[in-house]
Simulated assay, not measured.
Amino acid sequence: MDPSLLVAHHDGWTELTLNRPDRLNSFNEELSRALAAALDDAEDDACRAVLLTGAGRGFCAGQDLGERVSADGPPDLGYTIETFYNPLVRRLRGLRKPVVCAVNGVAAGAGANLALACDIVLAARSAKFIQAFAKIGLVPDSGGTFFLPRLIGEARARAVSLLAEPVSAETAESWGLIWRAVDDVALLPEARALAAHLATQPTQGLALAKAALNASAGNTLDAQLDLERDLQREAGRTPDYREGVTAFMEKRPARFSGRRS
């Protein structure tokens, strides 16, 4: 039996592929645990960027509802969210390196919101993002009610949440929901090239930039200015800052190591 998650290690970066194509890569407990373990492994300093994508004709259809059929009464969906989805979202946002997501085909429910938790999202032109929760009487989870208003504004966030209508990749790009829509055949090559590029960049500086952006939504301007000061102080003490300045002065490309010290 094939593993539910494929892990491929490249030079400085890791590709993670959701691998339940017969179920549109919907999440069951095995896949949730496998992705959590892979993100733990990606903390290793040898990995400087992560690419997340899906096998087959879809990125991820969210929760596998077949796991929720029970004769023992209503399921505790809050337990599922707290045990599996919330930790994954927190890990993707907090990972001290960039995470690229390549959305192929449908990204629905928790699958859409896990994609939005990544740092840079590319989508095939055939892809669609669907906040499918309203179709089964549920609330957008996995960060959906946090990400959507911030990315596309409250009016659009309310409409896509309450109507559960598909949003095309090109519309998602024009709204600012994702970084870029690309031709289907170019999706993986472009996403892999982007991950490989990020793996050569100043990893610690990128991690600190992620931390600043993550904090900005809940900060006042004064608090954010103070945070930027503190993070810049930390960034200025990294080997990659020294290398970047030296390379600039010597008029040559920088050779960043990604090391913390």
Rank of each mutant, 00 (worst) to 15 (best):
P87I: 14
L51A: 04
A102Q: 13
V167M: 15
C118D: 07
S168N: 12
G111W: 09
V139E: 15
A127M: 08
E67L: 12
N113A: 01
F84C: 06
G66A: 00
L95A: 09
R156G: 01
V100F: 02
T83K: 14
F129L: 09
L162F: 13
D141M: 13
R96P: 10
L114P: 02
L77G: 03
E173R: 14
L151V: 00
T83D: 12
Y85N: 15
V100K: 11
F147K: 04
P74Q: 02
F146T: 04
G137I: 08
D141C: 07
A71I: 15
G109D: 12
A172E: 07
Q63Y: 07
R150L: 15
G58L: 02
A159P: 00
V100T: 02
V99G: 03
V69R: 12
V100N: 03
L88H: 11
L116Q: 06
E82M: 00
K97V: 00
P149F: 08
S174L: 09
S126G: 14
A49P: 04
S168D: 12
S126L: 01
G137N: 03
V106F: 11
G54F: 01
A155F: 02
K128M: 11
P75S: 08
E165H: 05
A49T: 06
W175S: 02
G144Y: 03
A49R: 13
A49W: 13
Y85I: 01
R156Q: 14
G143Y: 01
I178W: 03
A164P: 00
V106Q: 14
Y85K: 00
T53C: 14
A132T: 11
L162V: 06
F84P: 02
R150F: 02
R48Q: 09
L51K: 03
A155E: 15
G73Q: 07
D141Q: 03
